[in-house]
Design a protein around this nucleic acid. Sequence first.
DNA 1: GAGACCGCTTAGAGGCATTAAACGTAGATA
DNA 2: TATCTACGTTTAATGCCTCTAAGCGGTCTC
Lengths: 238, 238
Amino acid sequence: MSARTTGRRERLRQATLEEIHAAARKLLVEQGSAAVTVNAVAREIGVSGPALYHYYSGHDELVGAVTAGFFRELAGAMEQARDAQAGAPIAERLLAVCRAMRAWAIGHPAEFGWIFASPITPPNLRRDSARHQAALRFEQILLDLTVELWRTRQFPVPDLAGLPESQREQLTAFSDVIGGVLPPEAVHVFLSCWIRLYGLLCMEVLHQLDFVYTDLEPVFEECLRDLAGLLDLDYSRT
Amino acid sequence: MSARTTGRRERLRQATLEEIHAAARKLLVEQGSAAVTVNAVAREIGVSGPALYHYYSGHDELVGAVTAGFFRELAGAMEQARDAQAGAPIAERLLAVCRAMRAWAIGHPAEFGWIFASPITPPNLRRDSARHQAALRFEQILLDLTVELWRTRQFPVPDLAGLPESQREQLTAFSDVIGGVLPPEAVHVFLSCWIRLYGLLCMEVLHQLDFVYTDLEPVFEECLRDLAGLLDLDYSRT
DNA sequence: GAGACCGCTTAGAGGCATTAAACGTAGATA
DNA sequence: TATCTACGTTTAATGCCTCTAAGCGGTCTC
């Protein structure tokens, strides 16, 4: 059957793609970002360098695809944590997802480094890429939980009247982008939380706090407690 | 005079070093991180590639030296802002320094990118480098102001009793490192502020918030207002 | 004035990204 | 079934990069 045989080719191709990703990841983890070269990846899977150009148009696209994979894995870990708490109160699900995010980041620092500071700079980064899609899925997880919280219990929101016009416009615009499931005021709270949570992780993984902290787990938990306070949720330690 | 002639050589060397830094910076700003190669820098200043090895032992050291220069420039901008407000209340000096920090970061995104996420990863980064020295000077500025604030007016501090043992130890250790000018409780507050301030800037410059904000100036001001609240300071807009 | 030294050059090895061209084989097709 | 085709691959080649080695002329020191 032609479908079957075509399927076979396709399967082989997928297998090779997975080999490529695994090799790239191995190089990244073991030898750092700079070691992930087209040639090195090819060597790792036992083919000549140019062979990889049948799978990716070049180094940047390869890196982008691998990074997208990391993003998906991170999002998957967070979703799994969320689903493991399926019946639990929203507070616990939110905390579980945040902790899963950090756990993955700490467990995979090199990969997380690529996620938010990949060697490919913005101009070379297309907005329609798989990488971008994966980023959206990642952001969606905490957004969804926040929306659920908003719908069921709401949470305290600031008065936007005191904010500059431009900021209010941006918050309203984002509220529209997400279909109005959160009003601009709630978007503001969501973003505040996002910034503090993600910002802390960035600093940790980029070693910006090494000068004082060797273990940031308690700091992260403090951050979570603060955020729980902002969202009027019960904070409970693991 | 021998001092004079030796001085001449030294002067020429310094001039060349400055040319190297300027060329590297130009390449970074105009063509991105990857464009800063030893060869390209050499080409830019009109010498052959290997000539640069008389100034730096290799690509990494060159990047480190250039980054240290950026650090010094950033610290200088912050110090200048501080000194411009020499007579003003501490609150205004603190705010001015923070705003100067962001202003420099926004005005020099590529350079700031190297400051906190340089292409040279930690293993290749020696702790005794000029880069590290410059980082210390940078951190010292806000630390000094915080110390002054603590000495003159103090600020609310949390009870450390509720924190995990390991965290208290780390805070105490850092308190010792800085000669006890801040007690562990105050160190905690200082670090909370530092994390929120610097974390926000990192996210901004790494384009992690592009999906919603095109202008983060109001967000930064909100952050400053929060921090002023933490430190029991009057917040005043520019 | 002679020797040491400095800053530079060219030459060269080895690696990487990428393109082009050639080749064999597995699937598709008549 | 025999042939065509397209795919996955290889080798060759270009041009860039890092870095080392060797050589050369001017400059500083004594």
